[in-house]
């Protein structure tokens, strides 16, 4: 047995992959199957699952309603579709904003003196040492009516003798967007930095030598060679933003409900695990579709771009 293991590369591979396979099977595959099964079930009046096969939960999610104001038997209710679309657009906006903030910073770090680079990277990582939820609460302190931002603006306005009423920033879609961008910025900076840092300096010289000024060098050489970093960062940001509910819960209140909040409330408040499961699966499918088309166009960002 041991002898076979020593000789067979594939047996070694199987053994090495075994713990993770078991882990994934028990904690991902089985729960996923259970979720699917539950999503086709029905909620009993006391909040339990009745195992049958019905598409009711999905139909409801896509706007079929029997609870119509006009008194009809059935009508279209955009409530849940809107939540899905809102999540999608927020994830999209967050990703775009994060890229536009992270890219210049990553570029700056990659082009700075090697001695300073580690300091800068360290500074990028420092916020991650604090708990996610606490960081979001910190934004609440900053954004609320009597928060730090309003105090500072008020103070400046007072100096300039301009009347000022504190801004309503908390519990708005903007607050959620700011929170998301802040939370996920490091996950974009690091992969972009890595791909920029890998670019051989002689490539910039070659571009200049062949007649490209700095703008053309950036567009034709730097940007394409750093795309793998942008793609990897996008995957790391887009997918979690689609599913997270803490940021919208704390900074969006009841105003900004995302799929994540919907799922959480179905399981905890509404006690309807069947509907929550259906929403979870739809979220997963939506994320998969977007990621699929994105990676088909740009790859996974796995290419190594060193010369």
């Amino acid at each position: 047995m041991l002898k076979r293991l020593r000789e067979s590369k594939s047996a070694q591979g199987t053994l090495l992959a075994l713990p993770t396979t078991v882990w994934l099977f028990v904690l991902l595959i089985i729960p996923l199957i259970l979720t699917a099964v539950v999503s086709f079930g029905k909620r009993s009046p006391d909040g339990n699952v009745i195992y049958t096969f019905t598409l009711d939960n999905y139909i409801r999610l896509f706007g079929y309603s029997t609870n119509c104001a006009s008194g009809q038997a059935a009508c279209f209710d955009p409530l849940y579709v809107n939540i899905l679309l809102r999540s999608l657009s927020l994830a999209f906006n967050t990703t775009v904003l994060v890229i536009s903030l992270a890219y210049p910073l990553a570029y700056f770090i990659a082009r700075s003196h090697p001695k300073q680079r580690n300091t800068y990277l360290f500074m990028v990582l420092i916020p991650l040492w604090t708990n996610f939820v606490i960081r979001v609460y910190a934004w609440m302190m900053l954004l609320r009516k009597e928060g730090a931002i309003n105090i500072i603006i008020g103070w400046v306005m007072n100096l300039l003798h301009i009347p000022f009423t504190p801004l309503e920033m908390l519990y708005t879609p903007g607050a959620v967007l700011v929170g998301m961008v802040y939370e996920f910025l490091p996950f974009m900076i690091l992969p972009i930095y890595t791909s920029l840092e890998k670019i051989d300096l002689s490539l910039y010289e070659a571009a200049a030598d062949l007649g490209a000024n700095s703008i053309k060098t950036f567009l034709r050489v730097t940007l394409p060679l750093s795309m793998p970093g942008v793609v990897a960062g996008t995957i790391l940001v887009f997918i979690p933003v689609m599913g997270t509910f803490i940021v919208s819960d704390i900074l969006g209140g009841r105003q900004v409900i995302l799929v994540g909040n919907l799922i959480q409330r179905q399981f905890l408040d509404a006690r309807d695990p069947t509907f929550g499961s259906a929403a979870s699966l739809i979220l997963m499918v939506m994320t998969l579709i977007v990621t699929y088309f994105y990676t088909r166009k740009f790859g996974f960002g796995e290419e190594i771009v060193v010369a």
Partner: peptide, 28 residues
């Protein structure tokens, strides 16, 4: 600056653009 000089360089590391084909490298 280099891009305004009528000289061209062959680099020790070649410094080829890996994201471009041979044709695109030359056409650049």
């Amino acid at each position: 600056p280099p891009f305004q000089r009528k000289v061209n360089t062959v680099f020790q590391s070649y410094a080829l653009f890996q994201h471009m084909t041979v044709f695109q490298n030359l056409a650049f």
